[in-house]
Design a protein around this nucleic acid. Sequence first.
DNA 1: GCCGTTTTCGGCCCGACTGTTTTCAGTCG
Length: 581
Amino acid sequence: MTREEAAEILQRIALLLELKGENPFKIRAYKTGAEVVEAYAGDIMQLAADNQLAGIKGIGEALRDKLHEMATTGKLQFFEKLKAEFPDGLFELFDIQGLGPKKIAALYSQLQVGSVADLKRVCVSGEAAKLSGFGDKTVVKILESIAFRAEHASEFRIDQVYALALDLLDTLRAHPAVSRAEVCGSFRRAKETVHDLDFLVSTRQPEQVIADFVALPQIEKVIVQGGTKASVYAPNGVQCDLRAVSSAEFPFALNYFTGSKEHNVVMRQRALDRGLSLNEYGFTPTEVGASLSPEIQEIHDEREIYRALGLDYIEPELRENSGEIEAAAQGRLPALIQLENLRGVFHNHTTASDGRGTLREMAEAARDLGLQYLGIADHSKSSFQANGLNEQRLRAQMAEIRVLNAEFEGHFRLFAGSEVDILKDGSLDFDDDLLAELDYCVASVHNVFNLPEAEMTKRIIRAIENPHVTMLGHVTGRLLLQRPAYAVNIPAIIDAAAETGTIIELNASAWRLDMDWRWWRLAKEKGVKCSINPDAHTTQGLEAVLFGVRAARKGWLTRNDVVNCLPLGQIEGALKKQRAD
DNA sequence: GCCGTTTTCGGCCCGACTGTTTTCAGTCG
């Protein structure tokens, strides 16, 4: 059993115990245990199998035994018994906004609701509204949440498919009969969520490649399998399509299946204007008897397709028909930022608040990634749920950071910051004197999400106008596929940030990717700088910058637009200048 | 269920908001 599976079981136990109304602290102990298992630096499952778990904080005697059982038998009797008391579908009810353990338990015990489908039924029939603690508004909220969920059914966040995509791609590339392989579709275009994964290979033996693909251990179920195409499900429900084409067709198929549809339409029109018809197999002349120019006959990669149409190469991320074709025709496409351009990252948490790495561990992980600096920004005191720091603890952390920086002797630098809560009225959780002592400060909204748009906008702008606020955190508070953005006027926020020189964060967590890529071109035009922030709560969490860079590229950003591309020697001055302006 | 200890039991993260209530329970962050 993998650590992820073990952690998931502990999480599920916590949910089931909540349903049973168990002691909340016992429940928390299971949740903590799950988090520890997930984040532990070391082979925790091997340690569990060897009975070597003693001394790990958060794992006591009971969890030690349970982990041992899971590691050695691949099962947990305690969980199996507990699970048997409830229908499987109950778990999905926890995803519905406004439903917690108490309401779910009431729905189950009184109306036998055991799935989202049941839930919808009793909401529509009026039975749910009659339950004690429920009312019309509750039901409306539940139905809205069910609708939101249905709207995004079979969509996946990028972190849910990333490893799978690379794994299958590597496998395909390693196949002896495959000469080229790519992931196309929205994955290649770096959309914030994807519906499925589209793989494309070039080969002379399509049937063999497809037969080998559907037989891979990663594949759960074959949906369709033909001579040049197969559709399958991977274990987590991700649909994967594979298409096999010839080497000559490959660039055209790659272009076609990368999309977007809108981009393809304009490309085909542009081809027609040049007397060519473009499809996923190649160019064909539109006039009978006409022949293809030698240049077009020798197309080996996507770049040459664009060249043939009088265009600079358009990176996949930009292919949304939002001005990229015009820019490519005029030679004014931006040189998009690359992961290697990042020199440091801001907005990261440690064990001081709700993170799981210590200052030192986070710093070491950042150095291992080749970064020159790491900005710490633990939660502020109002975020109780996240163990936010009060003034005293924040000052203690600043002192600790100074000590570590002395130790690094200039080879690496920690920046002392805070993710300070923007309170309901737009004031901040710390006073200006304390904020002035910090190297930088991220201001974020963490509560009261339901303000009217004008009020929320005013609230955030007030925070932006505080000269101590270096950057604005996750602008809309959205959680992809789970919680929509709160109402806020983003152009007004961008204007305010431009006015005050406040940086806007591109929160790189796969759950957020906030501010959305669709707004960055506007921000850039207005002169607003971006900071790609992993919002890491663990050492591995730093790697989310990868998703952030994808989103930044999709937002047309270059290294010059992103402050954390500045090397250590320059970032400090930039932060100071930002705060002085 | 975990932790720490004044060592075997008491404390464990708090507050705002919502919608249901008619004084508060449940959810969320």
